[in-house]
Structure formats: structure tokens, C-alpha cells
């Protein structure tokens, strides 16, 4: 698990909390997960410090019933901790990790693309001239269909825009 050790060393939780802009729920679940991990580590440390040997000679000298001490010693000697095959779990975790990393990378790439487009939009907005400085030519460039409409209108002999007078009034004296 060299990769996992490297990940452990690289994770800086304060940075994750403060800079990544995570949601409240995500931060809470992350903190809960960290707490669980810390508790497990603490309990593991406590248990591993406890003595694992039994002083049978002491019990032999104290107890009258030697047979039960022998029985207990035999049971202890015969006791073998059950071994669990955790490789399947580890494999599943590794697969999950790989999937999560892949997903995260895909999301990061997608976000990069979105960011680029947003920055392009921002630059466009910043470079845009104010509405007062806009000319009819600019509008025509942005929407060539206006030019087309003018062409067809002139071809058909229509020189007025329907609804224009109602909207903007008329300066004609006659």
C-alpha cells in the first residue's frame, strides 16, 4: 500500500476544509470520518499496549485446583486467532479508490473546461463596450439576420418596420 501511505502523508485536512470550498455536509461527513479513524487508532493503541501473556505459575501457587489451571493453560496454548481473508475487502477498496480517483480526475477536467469557458465569457464581458457606444454596424455584425431582413424588405419595396411607429413615435411633421 505504498500509494495509500503516500496519500496519507499528502492529505492536509485544514487545507481541504478551508480552500476547497466544500459543502457543509461534505465537511461534516469528512470530520466524522476523521473522528472514526482517530478513535479506531486510539483504541488500537490502547489494546496493543495491554499484556498478552498470562502468568500461570502465579495462578498455580494461588489456586488449589491445579487441574483447572492446566485446562486454562491448555486452552490458551491451543487458542489460535481466527484469520480473516481481507484481501477481497482490500481489493474492493482498491477498486473503489481507483474509481473514485478516476471520477475525480474526470470532474477536475470537466471543471477546467468549464472554467476556461467562463473565463472566456468574463473576458468577453470585460472587453465589451458599453451599450451607449454600440453602433448599428456592431449589431449587424453580431446578428447578420438583420442585414438579410433589410435586404428582403428593400427587395419587396417595404420601407417601414411594422410596429416601429407605435413603439418609438413619429417625427414626421406632415
Amino acid at each position: 500500500m505504498a500509494s495509500r501511505a503516500a496519500t496519507k502523508a499528502a492529505v492536509d485536512f485544514t487545507k481541504i476544509y478551508s480552500t476547497l470550498g466544500l459543502g457543509k455536509e461534505t465537511v461534516a461527513s469528512l470530520q466524522a470520518f476523521r473522528k472514526r479513524h482517530a478513535d479506531a487508532q486510539r483504541i488500537h493503541g490502547q489494546l496493543s499496549q495491554q499484556p498478552t501473556t498470562v502468568d500461570f505459575s502465579h495462578y498455580r501457587s494461588v489456586l488449589k485446583n491445579q487441574a483447572i489451571v492446566d485446562d486454562a493453560e491448555k486452552l490458551l496454548k491451543d487458542f489460535k486467532p481466527t484469520t480473516y481473508d481481507v484481501s477481497a475487502h482490500v481489493k474492493a477498496i482498491d477498486q473503489f479508490e481507483a474509481k473514485a480517483v478516476e471520477k475525480a480526475q474526470a470532474t477536475a477536467a470537466q471543471i477546467d473546461v468549464e472554467l476556461q469557458s467562463l473565463q472566456a465569457t468574463l473576458a468577453n464581458i470585460e472587453d465589451a463596450r458599453p451599450f451607449e457606444d454600440l453602433t448599428a454596424e456592431d449589431v449587424g455584425k453580431a446578428h447578420p439576420e438583420i442585414l438579410e431582413t433589410v435586404k428582403t424588405m428593400v427587395k419587396k419595396g417595404k420601407w417601414t418596420i411594422p410596429g416601429y411607429k407605435e413603439k418609438f413615435g413619429d417625427l414626421n411633421v406632415m
Binding site: A136, G140, I146, V150, M153, K158, W159, T160, Y164, F168
Partner: peptide
């Protein structure tokens, strides 16, 4: 007039109408 000047007025009105 028919080619440049009067169509420009139509164009101007249409643009004004459009942006409004």
C-alpha cells in the same frame, strides 16, 4: 438612394427595434 442611403434607414430602424 435606393442602394445605400434609404436601406440604411430601414437597417437603423430595424436594429433599434431589435435591440429594444
Amino acid at each position: 438612394f435606393s442602394r445605400y442611403i434609404l436601406p440604411y434607414f430601414v437597417y437603423l430602424s430595424l436594429t433599434r427595434y431589435y435591440i429594444t
